[in-house]
Design a protein around this nucleic acid. Sequence first.
RNA 1: CGGGACGUGGCGCAGUCUGGUAGCGCACUCGGCUGGGGGCCGAGUGGUCGCCGGUUCAAAUCCGGCCGUCCCGACCA
Length: 556
Amino acid sequence: MVADVAPRRRPGYRRALRLRQEGRGAGRRETGDHPGASLSALEEPGREPRGQLPGQRSWANTPEAGRYTGGSTRIERGALMAEAVEKLTKKSEDPSRWYLDLVRMAKLADYGPVRGTFAIRPYGFAIWERIQRDLDDRFKATGHVNAYFPLLIPESFLNKEADHVEGFAPECAWVTMGGDNELEERLAIRPTSESIICEFYRGWIQSYRDLPLLINQWANVLRWEMVTRPFLRTSEFLWQEGHTVHATAGEAREETLRMLGVYRDVFYETLAIPVLTGVKSPSERFSGAVETYTCEGLMGDGRALQAATSHDLGQNFARAFDITFLDEQQERVHPYQTSWGFSTRTIGALILVHGDDRGLRLPPRLAPTEAVIVPIWRGKNKEDVRKEAEKLYVELQAAGFRMEVDLDEEHSPGWKFNEHELRGVPVRVEIGPKDIEKGQVVFVRRDTGEKEFVPRSGAKDRLRELLEEIQENMLAQATEFREANTRHAESYEEFQEIIAKKRGFVVAPWDGTEETEEKIKADTKATIRLLSSERQKGKDLVSGKPGEMAIFARAY
RNA sequence: CGGGACGUGGCGCAGUCUGGUAGCGCACUCGGCUGGGGGCCGAGUGGUCGCCGGUUCAAAUCCGGCCGUCCCGACCA
């Protein structure tokens, strides 16, 4: 299982010279330790040396790895001239394999040795870093500060809130040994941090003057999962969890909704994912919460994904952990709490919502690289084209764009086109001898594949516009898809047929009972994703009793 | 945990039935020609055939055991 440590060689200088820098700021790169990356660098700063690091070739390190590539090698152009080309499985043919192929081929993540563990590779992590930065800025803007709490939680803490234990104990990983000695009390590796944080909050909160307490934590958590998929469901995942404390129920509810709104904005404005927001049914509620609000996205295959949640915890945890404060009336009372989380699962949502047969499509605001320049050269004019490409790169980079120029000499332009489309770079800029002659550059947008010729002098302005257009278009496309796949069911037969044949969101009245919810789940595998905020009335399709509109779907 | 399948260079596989020189494609390395949608030619590197035991002159191949992984049926950001 251990990777053989292949001798590592530096990439030769004839090899890829690929410059990748943060557009804004002083030459900061997303992925690592090369602050001075510049045009004169002969190494390839933004790119992994191909296949040299054990960890990076390690998709192959685990025996199961092969299972995921089985369908992706195709024999083409006849049996005699058999030529195997690794191709992305078509999304429509086998969405599940397509997803796994894409994650692997775009170098987003790689399997770990323990079930459900994954390495997030530099490109995948660069995407996470952009999400992180966006969220963090918005948390700060709404008055929150960051802190960090312990990974290990004594079992007795977890046990304090009854619903909470019930929900999380079954999927906890436990530490029972310290060195060679058995521990007196076993310790959970945090599946979420409410209990350990409450333990601290008890000591930190004494007066109404200490409230509201608005803290966020960026952390990893661990949940022992049966079935795992990269990003969508992993045992260990990264997220942020906000934990706030308020003097009144009203303030707590307001905070819960405020953060739901922040998530919603990030989904719409940055990820271009038109999530629906609303309340969870009691059975889908967070263990220990009074109310759970959710952002639900509709994936390309018609299944729903819970993308982020915001919980109103009421006084449940405050009571269980004996958190009290003296209010303005000199009375000792329990405060009201909230918690809200957004995880790396979102990267999975991004892939499922926007990806296509060519690979990933990244919304510009999220893309680590907004545009990549691919020079088209021939032997005799290689140097001229290279100089022009580098000049353009410097110019656009200086204008604030996150740019990359692909000066790799080993691959053909066609190869590079495919590669950058796979990685989802929003815009490809081509520049070749013909373009130089005509004083133009070629822009090709990833979302539609459209090609346009732009005067060199107007490149900067047009790129700015184009990125905006792509961002808008991607949200529009996803919204159109969601609307086309949201249906109202008038009868239970119709409901079942839609779920079975078309998937998507189904809007139908629900009488509010667990019985009908259970029956629907047993019959169709569909669950209530959220209760519509519009509060429309209707008659439950199963029981015939009056109820309010709910959104159903099969979920990930 | 019940049912099915699989384990051979980094990856995908063939070879196993019928025991006898471990093979193909991709990737990787070197050289050259190329370059506007996954180029071509040539030369190379790389494998205790999951592990343990047995049968045999001889085991990837036959027999026994073990381990691991994947797929299908009960929980979750």
